[in-house]
Design a protein around this nucleic acid. Structure first.
Lengths: 123, 123, 123, 123
DNA sequence: GTGGTCTAGACCACG
DNA sequence: GTGGTCTAGACCACT
């Protein structure tokens, strides 16, 4: 369900968050589906429960999942995500940093766009 | 010359590195130009010399600048940057993370591409 | 594990880097082995954690070790080191300087070669 | 007479010292020959007189040259260089460091020896 | 003046 | 617990 990379530099909990979001986006996980408990998930992917808990907290904060105490954790109903200006700015900043690197590596605008398309379509 | 954001979470030294690279890319800084000494720059932007030194060392490692101890620091001659596979993978990973967020915010592939184009052209 | 010389003039962090590389080469440290945390190592050899951290970062840059923040630092899988032309030139320059000294001390080419062989075999 | 590299990392004054020693070794400069004054040399090679002065001081300390106040600076008579144990150890240490790098780059003992021979013969 | 190195101590995110 | 970053201040070698 989740595959982790310890070398990407990306925090483990973020990788969990991101991949669950992707699963939801792709439709592998739908509203109301149960997701494994913190402990089960921790065992499955070989990390400490702490890390999974942190990921779940973040997902809950983003209203992607809901935990019903005593029952379990479920995928939330789809809600329109409001476009948060601050968040968008942050995203742009991060992308900008990566585009700088690409440009220095000789990537033209078209090259970069092609790369982005490839990644997006693979989402 | 350099503007810092203490809220972005991005390390200061990385911000310095990135902005100098951008200045070079935009042509504001050319081969042979002197850049402020570690101390001067530190005073200007209000950080300790150590932090600036770390940024300069990173830039030197990437062959963007050349420092001659006792003389100063200069913009290096342009050299073709070899495409590092690992680095590219890392960049792709980061972009992927941001695209996920964008998609969740309702961005279509075209929207994302448009955003990327806008950012790239502003480089 | 590490023995430092404060008289050689060689930076502490370089000595750490070099000795860990030697340990890896000699097989005392193998892929996957843990090396002491920055703080532990710092205590052991009596320097500040910062200096050890600098050494570790350099080793990571050279792909000798892999560090997983929050978990620890490990010896990386062996990877073929690509021959860097600039680096080779630098090495030749340094060796040249030492050979000049040796020649002035009366060392013939054979003497020098014998010395090099002795050092290499002791690696 | 002297060619400098600002990128080798080797101090300028050391480069001057080394190259003059090489000239002497090769016989281009013989006992009693005059070498340019500090100022002349500084102009010729484009460094500050300070740097040349430092080099000359070092050469004098090593009895390679002698300055006769009011007359000029001359190549000293050849004197047998006594083998200084401390110095030898230092040289070995430096060579060792470079051999580590070479070994990591895949150089065998023979490769290293070949390199050393090439450099020595070019002295 | 320059950059390079080191110390001492702090805060933070991550697991 | 881990490593990453930053500050404040010091000393050194080099130009």
């Amino acid at each position: 369900m989740i595959t982790l990379s310890y070398q990407s530099g990306q925090p483990i909990y973020e990788q969990i968050v991101e991949q669950i979001k992707i699963h939801v986006m792709k439709g592998y996980l739908k509203s109301g589906d149960v997701i494994p408990s913190v402990r089960k998930m921790a065992l499955e992917i070989g990390v400490t429960p702490n890390t999974v808990a942190k990921a779940y907290q973040e997902l809950e904060r983003q209203k992607v999942i809901v935990t019903i105490p005593g029952k379990g954790t479920f995928i939330a109903e789809k809600t329109k995500v409001s476009v948060d200006k601050d968040k968008l700015k942050k995203i742009e900043g991060i992308i900008k940093g990566q585009l700088v690197e690409l440009k220095l590596m000789g990537y033209s605008c078209e090259d970069a766009v092609k790369l982005v398309k490839k990644i997006y379509e693979n989402l």
